[in-house]
């Protein structure tokens, strides 16, 4: 059940490339059992100028109440957030939304991440490793250059296979992450192996992943970003176009994770 609570910033860790991890302390138990892909709405002491909270995927959470998010300065809210100092507080609402399907259900999960889309997939990997399903995951990680690829050492420590792609070719394959992903999906088809794709990142990347998954008839789960005002199903602002009996679903309550085929892109 989501609740609203106050959290204090404990650490603001710079990862390079403009990415930061904000670590918070909060009352114990509030984010227990968070599913990778679920998110929190965060709002600082922003006065009357910036009204609405911002959505962030949970990077990790501990039973003692500590949790972290990862972000990059983007607009007005995130610019304030990356400048936060330990001791600053934020109002948190969560956990919200529906996350990714759990690992270890018989398919190998191919995690496809780009930019600030890494956190839910990082958490998926962490949870899988803790449950002994580390071998059932692989990471495909795309960025413009070396600086865009962060927290790779965690995946290495967890023993998860990683394939990178950068637009400038500085790390891994040159081009988009769908290049190595296509190869992997074709190989799985040749081997008759069961795979599914879990992806989060910039919308152009998600569109490309979706197109590839549809082309090769692979199940893909996309963690989408829409403008949100409330995050808990009230404003109806975060509509996602879908196929099916209704033209729209809601990113905050039906998602943010949607099956690629369902999304009307």
């Amino acid at each position: 059940m989501p609740t609203q609570f106050e959290a204090q910033l404990v650490a603001n860790r710079t990862l390079g490339g403009g990415y930061v991890v904000l670590e918070f302390s909060a009352p114990a138990g509030r984010l227990d059992g968070v599913v990778p892909g679920q998110f929190v709405m965060l709002r600082g002491a922003w006065g009357r100028e910036l009204l609405n909270p911002r959505a962030f995927s949970v990077l990790w959470s501990e039973p003692d109440g500590r949790f972290a998010v990862m972000l990059k300065a983007y607009g007005r809210g995130t610019t304030r957030m990356v400048a936060m100092q330990p001791g600053d507080s934020m109002t948190v609402t969560g956990p919200l939304g529906r996350g990714f399907p759990p690992p270890g259900q018989g398919s190998v999960q191919l995690l496809v991440a780009g930019g600030v889309g890494l956190p839910p997939l990082h958490l998926q990997a962490r949870v899988a490793v803790q449950a002994g399903h580390g071998r059932a995951l692989e990471l495909f990680y795309g960025g413009r250059n070396r600086d865009d690829l962060v927290l790779l050492d965690d995946f290495e420590r967890w023993g998860i296979a990683v394939q990178c792609a950068t637009e400038d070719g500085s790390v891994g394959a040159r081009g988009f992450v769908t290049v190595p992903l296509r190869e992997r999906l074709l190989q799985a088809r040749r081997d008759g192996a069961r795979v599914e794709v879990l992806s989060c990142g910039p919308t152009p990347m998600l569109r490309a992943v979706r197109a590839l998954a549809l082309e090769l008839d692979v199940t893909a789960w996309l963690c989408l970003e829409e403008e949100m005002a409330c995050g808990f199903g009230v404003c109806l602002g975060c509509a996602v176009p879908v196929h099916g009996e209704r033209p729209y679903r809601y990113c905050c309550t039906d998602g943010p994770v949607f099956e690629a085929r369902q999304v009307r892109w």
Binding site: R48, M228, C235, L236, G237, Y248
Partner: peptide, 20 residues
């Protein structure tokens, strides 16, 4: 009734615009 196409909301200075 089903709602409008997206984007349906955006935040502005001290407010927000909606077209749900």
């Amino acid at each position: 009734r089903f709602g409008n196409p997206l984007p349906r909301i955006c935040e502005t200075a001290s407010g927000m615009i909606n077209s749900i």
